[in-house]
């Protein structure tokens, strides 16, 4: 069994300063991931140093603009574009902003909606 993981909740305003602090402390960016829970969106920033994770969680509503950390970590643009394309959240100030063309999906913001397919004989009944 591995050690328990702690995710520290922070405010939207602290995202960039915490990223800057992590970079100063010698952490590398591991991932940024978004989860939709009800109407809220949880975004988790994960950093790593010597196989120890440092995680911050922000909880936002759909209309909140999230500041980009790509000024601190160049590689953050892939995650931030992904969050924008899959969930429709707005991230401001990305260094390479694809403006919604990172993923080419038939349905806009596919992870923000739930579509139930019906009329197929082999679906779970």
């Amino acid at each position: 069994m591995m050690a328990a993981q702690v995710i520290t909740p922070i405010g939207v305003g602290d995202v960039v300063s915490k990223a800057g602090q992590a970079k100063k402390d010698g952490y590398r960016l591991v991932q940024i991931g978004c989860t939709k829970i009800g109407d809220d969106f949880e975004i988790i920033y994960v950093y790593d140093k010597d196989f120890t994770l440092l995680s911050y969680r922000i909880t936002v509503k759909e209309d909140v603009v999230i500041p980009s950390i790509s000024s601190e970590y160049f590689g953050a643009f892939v995650y931030e574009n992904e969050i924008h394309d899959l969930y429709g959240l707005h991230v401001s100030g990305i260094n390479i902003d694809f403006k919604g063309t990172f993923y080419k999906t038939a349905i806009k913001h596919p992870f923000n909606v739930t579509i139930t397919k019906e009329g197929d004989s082999c679906q779970n009944k």
Partner: peptide, 10 residues
Amino acid sequence: IPSIGYVHRG
């Protein structure tokens, strides 16, 4: 400028 998204399956 990289771009992916051709085989996104969700």
